Simulated scan of single mutants.
Amino acid sequence: MTEKSSVRRHGRRRVKRSPVGASPGTLIADPSAIPSTLSATVMSPQGYKVYPSVNLEDIRRLKAEWPAIWVDCVGLGDVSLIADLGKIFDLHALALEDTVNTGQRPKSDFYDEHAFVVLYAIDDDQTHRYEQIGVFFGEGFVITFGERPGDPFDPVRKRIEANGGNRLRARKADYLAYALIDAVVDSYFPHVEATGAAIDQIEDDMVACWERGQLADLHRIRHNLIAFKRWLWPLRDAISGLLRSDAPFLTAETKIYLRDTLDHVASAIEIVETYRETVTGLIEMHMSMAQAKTNEVINLLTIVSAIFIPLTFLAGVWGMNFDPQVSPWNMPELQWYYGYPAALTSMAVIGVLLFLYFRWRRWL
């Protein structure tokens, strides 16, 4: 049976799914997924160590020697490695399946010995490409899964390495999980603020000088705002689920900090909604200005045509083939010595009078 997957179109995220009829918890690697690599950070109130590259045996040893361990798995191409890692920490098979099958909706699930959180981070500033991040945490461990190298966790790593009173090393693993989730949420704000600055710039440019290319920029920004909303709205529900949980490995003190993260998500959603309404209004304004420009052109062409209609009429009359020698009624003006200058002068006078009349009526 072939694997089902959706096609990436118009910048939309490609979603990988398990084959139809597969057993729950079946892990099938995406052919485009990069190989999996593991790193580990272990910590205690007395100190910490960072291991840039580890294997499963190293993780078993470190897990037994240190009170808290953070394992970071980059790349989802090696499902056997991911499955073995899940066995070490007794991770639920359904949660591992959601980890490998990218494109999941942001959520939080609770199992007997651990919690599983799905969220998204922007890993490409230019294209606003999103990366699914899975966070497992339980008593004494945190495991993160990312699709590609590069994540928003550097501030957390620096806090772990900081000297002096270190809250991350002194507290339990659930606080580290909170810090990682909060880092992902905070990583949205620079992109949201940059989007707001771009909206303001386009608005100023539209007022100063309307251009056709501005509409494409507005649609691109609108697409980015829809993506923000798509991942932030369910993330709010996911964090709310963490706050409602009574799992023993999630302490009440950590929930206080998670409540602050929830406020950040709500603030980001409100900003995104405001920007989205602003962009919608700018798109309507751009279309109205385009219609106004078209109307100006039509009005100008109509006025020019109206001025030349009587002139064309006169030229047509004087251009008819009449012979004044046959009858005095056959265009005697054709024999005038100043007939040609008189005709041009009369046409110019009529044109000027019509122009002044249109200006007086404010049609020009």
Rank of each mutant, 00 (worst) to 15 (best):
M285Q: 05
Y51T: 03
S327Y: 12
V297D: 15
G11W: 15
A162P: 03
Q201G: 03
R157T: 07
L235G: 00
Y48I: 13
D200M: 10
Y48R: 07
T294Q: 15
I202Y: 08
G164W: 10
S245C: 00
G213D: 15
F110Y: 12
G316H: 00
E253W: 06
P67R: 07
A95W: 08
M1N: 03
W336R: 06
G146V: 12
A348N: 04
H223S: 11
G165C: 01
P190T: 07
D109V: 13
R9F: 14
T2C: 02
L334Q: 05
S305W: 04
M285W: 05
G351P: 10
F136H: 01
R171N: 13
L232F: 05
R230P: 02
D174N: 03
V265K: 00
R220E: 14
P234D: 10
M1L: 04
H10M: 10
G138A: 08
A216T: 05
D174W: 00
E3K: 03
T280W: 01
F355K: 04
M289L: 15
R12P: 12
Q291M: 14
A170I: 00
V279L: 06
A197I: 12
C209H: 12
I88G: 02
I133M: 12
A306L: 13
V156Y: 04
G11M: 15
E97M: 06
Q132G: 02
G319L: 05
G134K: 07
L334G: 09
L56W: 09
L356D: 08
G213M: 15
R276N: 14
L168W: 10
L168G: 04
L76G: 01
K4L: 06
I309G: 01
Q335C: 03
Q325N: 11
I69L: 11
W70A: 07
H223D: 08
I221A: 05
D109H: 10
V185F: 10
F313Y: 03
I350C: 07
G213I: 15
V15R: 02
Q214T: 05
W360C: 00
G196L: 07
G213Y: 15
A266E: 11
R362I: 06
F322Q: 04
L56T: 05
A29N: 11
Y178S: 06
G150N: 06
I221Y: 03
L364Y: 05
R259L: 12
H92Y: 11
L364V: 13
R157C: 09
Q46C: 09
H223F: 11
S32Y: 12
L218P: 02
I34R: 07
A227V: 01
A177K: 04
W66E: 15
E203R: 01
M287E: 14
V117N: 01
G134W: 03
R8I: 06
D246Y: 02
S240K: 00
H286A: 04
V71S: 02
A68C: 14
M347Y: 05
A121D: 15
R14T: 04
R244F: 02
I307G: 00
W231K: 00
A208N: 15
P149Y: 09
F358D: 03
E203D: 11
L356R: 07
Y130S: 00
E147V: 03
N299S: 09
